[in-house]
Amino acid sequence: MCSPHKGLIFTAVKLPNKNMANITELNQLTTQVRRDILRMVHKVNSGHPGGSLGCAEFFVALYNEVMELKEGFDMDGKEEDLFFLSNGHISPVFYSVLARRGYFPVEELNTFRLINSRLQGHPTTHEGLPGIRMASGSLGQGMSVAIGAAQAKKLNKDAHLVYSLHGDGELQEGQNWEAIMYASAKKVDNLIATIDLNGQQIDGSTDHVLHMGDVAAKFKAFDWEVLSIEKGNDMEAVIEGLQKAKALSGKGKPVCVLMHTVMGNGVDFMMHTHAWHGKAPNDEQLANGLAQNAETLGDY
């Protein structure tokens, strides 16, 4: 069993019904998520803001518009869509969106990376945080896990979908290609795997570190359905892309979404560089970043 939550007392709240009526509201939430990300990593002077900021629209869209979720949280996740984060270092955006979706109190974001917290540096089931079904952090494992969960859904005759997110640099891990080969061969067509193509990794650009060539061609060669979201930081484009992916599911092939994002999106000095992959802003930089993302739903 998961370890009991240590020290800090929070309770999981019931998951509210979706009430995101329009793009404006989703964008407001996204801005608030950006503030959460900046404040979380600033407070503990550690964490990964760059990829988190770049994927804010994706997470907000997924959890508030795209996925079918049931109330509450249980590990098995039967009769609802599931999501697996493979590149676990972008935990700040995951935690913020989960909290603001109602999986746990937003005040708990205050405990990110602190001792005795459920919000570990990389996501885990170990401390029993609602919304997390698999530990991630060591890269390259999430695709296999998502495939397994998708195959369990087929066995359970559960028509819901499994979503996953992977970094582009993460594709350098060989296990992905085992999983990519397997998913098409076994017709795992209830899986929608999104690749965050921000072109950056810790040591520099993906082109510089290990050029990956044509990622779309690679997935196509492995017989996946492949579609692109060219504007991965545009809420409408993200939703449209994910809805298209949904429509492509169930037709005998796994679906890959190549989502082009800007690392550090929404904070000008963090954008288009790997420098903010795993670095926290100082006080002045935080103030600057927050000024570019005015409070919408209220800070935690």
Partner: peptide, 20 residues
């Protein structure tokens, strides 16, 4: 799974989600 043990362990972990 084929000759892909890392993938096998990951898929097994995923299959537990759903009660397998």
């Amino acid at each position: 799974i084929g000759i892909a043990e890392a993938n096998m362990i990951g898929i097994a972990a995923g299959l537990t989600i759903g009660g397998k």
